[in-house]
Amino acid sequence: MTTTTPRGTSKVGTAIRARKDAGSGAVIGYLPVGFPDVSTSIEAAVAMANNGIDVIELGLPYSDPVMDGPVIQAATQRALAEGFRIREIFPAVREIVSQVSSPVVVMTYWNPVTQYGAQRFADDLAAAGGAGLITPDLIPDEAAEWIAAADAADLDRVFLAAPSSSEARLRQAVEASRGFVYTVSTMGITGARSDVDSAASTLVARLREVGVENACVGLGISTAEQVREVLAYADGAIIGSAFVRALAEGGVARLAEVSRDLASGSRPAADQPA
């Protein structure tokens, strides 16, 4: 079900814009590829897209996931223990985008991309139908190689902004990103929390002041009510641990239920997935 977009057009930005035009914002869902195995992770990503998740964020398992919370760390470590290899990300992306229209971005630490080769990684991801890359540990002023590779392959590139970022850093993130800026609502590692940090709305406002097109808030969202809260001021809500936990505890069926529930935070009742 791969959709064609003109070169230079952000697949993720297009998906977010569609949700904004509908009067809300996007829900972006994270799962690590290879958990609990590659075929199930593909099935899970498809289930998320078919149950209201607008953008799929596919995590590349890494041996030193310093920014991930315990739920995601456990899942990625299991994927690695099962023998997952970097090259497996590309056929996984290809299989997912062949079945759904939601764009797929890969979230990865920078070291695996360097090991694989930045331009080779970009080219292989684009050939698989991937939309782009989220690089949480790569800052824009050290990202010239990736920006050039992503531009050559026509991929989105997503950088992070945190509450501690200076105005200059925020401006760099906005200028270097295509698709959205990943707006970190709390300092520290990822993981579902009972309350979304109030620092998020302040950070989004600061990003608006320096010209952000799409600011999507992640780290800590776990309920439909929090999705609604975030989308009152942001362009997207990014959810990870809640989905990984659902898959771990109840398989794809439970993940589909949780996806429908969390997606409901971005849609009026008449617009719910069937």
Rank of each mutant, 00 (worst) to 15 (best):
T3A: 10
P6L: 09
T9G: 06
A18I: 11
A22D: 13
G23H: 05
G29A: 09
P32W: 03
D37S: 12
T40H: 01
T40W: 00
S41V: 01
I42C: 02
I42D: 04
V46L: 07
A47M: 07
Y62W: 07
Y62V: 06
S63D: 05
P65G: 00
P70T: 09
I72D: 03
R78S: 13
A79N: 05
F84E: 08
F84L: 15
F84G: 05
F84Q: 02
I86E: 13
A92D: 10
V93P: 12
V93E: 12
I96G: 11
V97P: 12
V100S: 01
S102H: 03
V106F: 03
T108N: 00
Y109V: 13
P112C: 09
V113G: 02
Q115E: 11
A128C: 01
A131F: 02
I134H: 09
I139R: 13
A149D: 08
A149G: 05
A149H: 13
A150Y: 03
D151K: 15
A153D: 09
A161K: 08
P163E: 07
S164F: 04
R169W: 04
A173E: 06
E175Y: 03
T186A: 14
G188Q: 05
I189G: 00
S194R: 13
S198M: 05
G211E: 00
E213H: 12
N214T: 10
N214F: 15
T223Y: 12
T223L: 11
V230D: 07
L231H: 03
A234K: 07
A237G: 06
I238Y: 11
L247E: 01
G251S: 04
A253Y: 02
E257Q: 14
S259C: 14
R260D: 05
A263W: 02
R267Y: 03
D271H: 14
Q272G: 05
A274T: 10
